[in-house]
Amino acid sequence: MNTELIESITKLIIEKIGKPSEEKLASESGMVKLWDHLSPENQYIVTGSDSHDGAQNSNGLVKLWDHVKADESKSAGYKEENTILPELETRIGVSSPCHPEALQEWVTKTPARIGIGRAGLRPKIETWLRFRLDHGAAVDAVYGSVQQELLKSLNLFTVRTMVDQKEEYIRRPDLGRKLSEEAKRTIREKCQYKPKVQIIASDGLSSQAIEKNLEDVYLSFLQSLDQLGIEYGTSFYIEKGRVASMDEVGEILEPEVVVLFIGERPGLVSSESLSAYLCYKPRKGTIEADRMVISNIHSGGIPPVEAGAYLGSVVQKILKYQASGVSLVRKEG
């Protein structure tokens, strides 16, 4: 393993990303070429060294992989270009659509992967790879934690559930619904008892969801409650919590309404989607159908600021009917 070479390649790639005029640069310095998708005869990977970096080998070219044998490759030639592949994208791929303008317009109406065309009956390769890439990123988002700075800036203290590791969180939802003894003590000590509205946040299955959306949705929700003249208690953060952890909080603090902001299971379009669960008097034994949820709170779904404002009116309705979920639908008549 030639560390120096790898460093020099990496540096070149990084520089390359920052420079827009690829072709010109390539012809001038004759540098790293990873794969030129435009010219089929050049589908091998060649890297060269830049004289400025001094990481040259004897012939000035380093071959990382070449599917054409050395003597056959003469005709193809080594294009010493400084090119990097473009980012994988879900592209429009319908061949000769009846209405090209409609196609262009319709794909902007939804984040769904539509208008992608096909290779026979199968997806095209770039669309397929982008899909697999997004899945990989979503899996990574499940594991991760929320920065303490964010929670501090919002004045949220942190308590824990019975869960230790994330793997345990995934396998044991029952433990994520229960607060640790220390958490119960802390909540009793620090929180206002019997508030009208108790606000909680938790990372759930996506720390990214909290990182990206909590500040906006939380502050706009508080503002909305203030405007409606609805009081709220002392908010806090539950690490690795499940939705039903609100029931234990309900037992301890006996609020009228609990609003829980929790990270959703990451999706491919967004791994930062947040949900707000609302429940009237959640207690031990609360049934799922009495909870309500506003999901898809993120920049590509319901914008967090709008969600916060909307939530205020939902809380107002819950307080008016003294019910949430299916019970609220019934009472509303």
Partner: peptide
């Protein structure tokens, strides 16, 4: 079936439109 198997609302993956067509044929 969902577009490209990606349900952009429920945040999970199912079979794609392509998959159903391929299974049939």
């Amino acid at each position: 079936a969902t577009p490209m198997g990606d349900d952009c609302m429920l945040n999970y993956q199912s079979l794609s439109y392509h998959d159903v067509a391929t299974l049939r044929q």
